[in-house]
């Protein structure tokens, strides 16, 4: 897929190192799955990671672990217990990576209305927040900044803000000092996967008051 907006190199770097909070890592994983350019960069980060691992003392495994894995190799069923990706590959508009969590179609989700033209669906994450946001055509989101990193991946439709136009597959990797006000700019509306690792900072009073209710 040809994407116009990618995660920042520093984000790919941390992703490849396994050091991004899982909420952010999920957004990056969904983008990398469809973006060859970023796949190449992630592969480079992995090579760097391996090189760095080589430079420190290795930690030997406890004595019985070798025997144990040999036993496990002989266990019946081990050959067939791989998780088959195929079961998720039927029709649907949800990215394959998210299907184990969401099913195949966005329309089957129980969206929660946050404001006129805005619905959300919260996904599990151990660090940071991960949510789907569905924005009706023409809806303008409240202007906001961030206290940490924010990564947004467009899954359906498109939106525009001060930083440009974002279409399916594009990622907005937004620094905390950036304030932006996205608007869904096509007739089909827009669905995004958004990860944050710090609370949002709204400018208006009403969004600020509503913030705790929507776990923003």
């Amino acid at each position: 897929m040809n994407c116009n907006h990618h995660p920042d190199d520093s984000t790919l770097f941390s992703y490849g190192a396994g050091s991004l909070p899982d909420s952010l890592a999920m957004v990056v994983a969904c983008h990398v799955a469809v973006c060859e350019q970023c796949q190449g960069k992630v592969a480079d980060t992995e090579q760097i990671g391996l090189g760095l691992v080589e430079q420190e003392p290795h930690q030997s495994m406890s004595s019985h672990s070798r025997d144990r894995i040999l036993d496990m190799l002989s266990e019946p069923g081990i050959e067939n217990s791989a998780t088959p990706a195929a079961q998720h590959e039927s029709e649907g508009d949800v990215p394959v990576l998210l299907r184990p969590l969401l099913g195949n179609r966005f329309s089957n989700l129980h969206w929660r209305t946050m404001a006129p033209g805005m619905k959300q669906f919260i996904l599990p994450a151990s660090r940071g927040k991960l949510r789907l946001l569905k924005i009706a055509p023409g809806t303008l989101l409240p202007s906001h900044g961030h206290n940490g990193s924010e990564l947004t991946l467009v899954l359906k439709g498109s939106y525009s803000d001060e930083l440009g136009r974002f279409c399916v597959g594009d990622v907005a990797d937004i620094d905390p000092d950036v304030t932006h006000q996205p608007v869904a700019d096509t007739h089909e509306g827009c669905i995004c996967l958004i990860a944050t690792d710090g609370p949002l900072r709204f400018k208006g009073l009403v969004p600020r008051l509503l913030q705790p209710f929507f776990q923003l």
Binding site: D22, M26, A29, V32, A33, E36, Q39, G40, V42, A43, D44, E46, Q47, I48, L50, G51, T83, A85, H88, V96, L97, P100, L101, L123, P124, A125, S126
Partner: peptide, 26 residues
């Protein structure tokens, strides 16, 4: 992710296949 008690389900399907090769052997 699994350490979080209210997880919906585990997710084992990060992209593995289909990666562009890194020509850099470190």
């Amino acid at each position: 992710r699994k350490e979080k008690p209210d997880m919906l389900s585990p997710l084992n399907s990060y992209p593995e296949a289909g990666y562009t090769p890194s020509l850099a052997v470190c």
